[in-house]
Simulated scan of single mutants.
Amino acid sequence: MLAYVGLVQAGNAKAPSSAAFELITLGDSGGIQDGNLSAFLLRSLTENNYIALDAGSIVNGIDVALEHNAFAKLAIANDPEWHTNGTILRQHVKGYFISHGHLDHTAGMLISSPQDSSKPIYALPSVHQTMLDTYFNWQAWANFTDRGIKPQLKKYQLIDLMPKQTLAIKDTSLNVTAMSLSHPLESAVFIIEKGDDLFVYFGDTGPDAVEKQGKLKAVWQYLAQQLKSKTLRAMVIEVSFDNQRPNNLLFGHLTPKWLMTELNQFNSLLATTTDKDTPLQGAQIVISHIKYSLAKGPDPRIVIKQQLEQANNLGIKFILAKQGQRLEF
């Protein structure tokens, strides 16, 4: 599947131009569906190097993406020592961006680490500490990092991201800025830049009205300022449950109702710097982390898709992430 995103710039309408980013879905669901947990690969279309946005499913995700011909536009390196999936992981994935330490966002990286290549892990400091305390501790898993319990195998270099401080991403032409999100474990949003183009990836997050921390408002304010001179190509954001989920059981997640509440706040901020009432109209937003369920009843994906369409008063084009999917923005 290939989609092209509407461009969003707060100051002035911008005519569509050629795509800037490629996004490949390695895992689309949150929770229990092992083999299909939150993970995406992102690259600038001007280069052959990806970054991994979360890492719930890595090797299985690459295998499914290969089956769907998602790497058709990648000039895959010739490496006689490794199969194609190994070459992609070892040579073309240049770093992990871990939004938070829950297993459905980290398990693929942990499991694949023995045959992975050396590369950085980028995260907020608290996220790195969670992974050192919980996984890379020589009990749950060997310490493949350059910190924590010895011996340190030093395959992964832990790079701390400080909120609102932009950092160049090694071995790519991309920059990243991270901000904190509300979740039982501190989570993060990653704002990826290539020139004047932005791609935004949200880890797990609850709505501000429930979490009472104002963290999404801070993200919308930051993005609104950035979009005075830059262009939002796309964003990935979670919707874990349908609207029937009570607020006290959200556990730091969004529903279609709460996502639209947040996006309307973002739209209002953007509207203050443009003559449009709905500056987000035409923007495409990738929906991730829909919780897979073993219970009988309607498919959560179908229910959430319908609820998003019914509540969509902004003209947004929603795309439900699907494992193996390739998108250009």
Results as ranks from 00 to 15, higher is better:
229 S>A: 14
229 S>P: 11
230 K>Y: 13
230 K>H: 15
235 M>V: 09
236 V>M: 12
237 I>R: 00
237 I>P: 04
238 E>F: 05
238 E>V: 11
240 S>E: 10
240 S>L: 08
240 S>G: 05
242 D>H: 02
244 Q>A: 14
245 R>V: 05
245 R>C: 08
247 N>A: 15
248 N>F: 14
248 N>S: 12
249 L>A: 14
249 L>G: 08
249 L>E: 15
250 L>D: 09
250 L>N: 10
251 F>V: 14
251 F>P: 04
254 L>H: 11
254 L>D: 05
255 T>M: 00
255 T>I: 04
256 P>N: 07
258 W>G: 01
258 W>Y: 15
259 L>V: 08
260 M>H: 11
261 T>N: 12
262 E>T: 03
263 L>W: 08
263 L>S: 06
266 F>E: 06
267 N>G: 03
269 L>D: 12
270 L>G: 02
272 T>Y: 04
273 T>H: 08
273 T>L: 01
274 T>E: 02
275 D>S: 11
276 K>C: 02
278 T>E: 10
278 T>G: 00
278 T>D: 10
281 Q>N: 13
282 G>K: 01
283 A>L: 15
283 A>I: 11
286 V>W: 07
286 V>E: 01
287 I>T: 06
292 Y>E: 09
293 S>E: 13
294 L>W: 14
297 G>Y: 06
298 P>T: 09
298 P>N: 07
298 P>C: 00
299 D>V: 03
300 P>D: 04
303 V>G: 06
304 I>V: 07
304 I>G: 01
305 K>F: 08
306 Q>K: 13
306 Q>Y: 09
307 Q>T: 04
308 L>G: 07
308 L>C: 04
311 A>Y: 05
312 N>F: 06
312 N>G: 06
313 N>M: 06
314 L>K: 01
314 L>W: 07
315 G>A: 00
315 G>E: 02
317 K>A: 13
317 K>P: 00
318 F>I: 06
320 L>G: 05
320 L>S: 04
321 A>E: 02
322 K>H: 12
323 Q>E: 10
323 Q>C: 02
324 G>L: 02
324 G>Q: 04
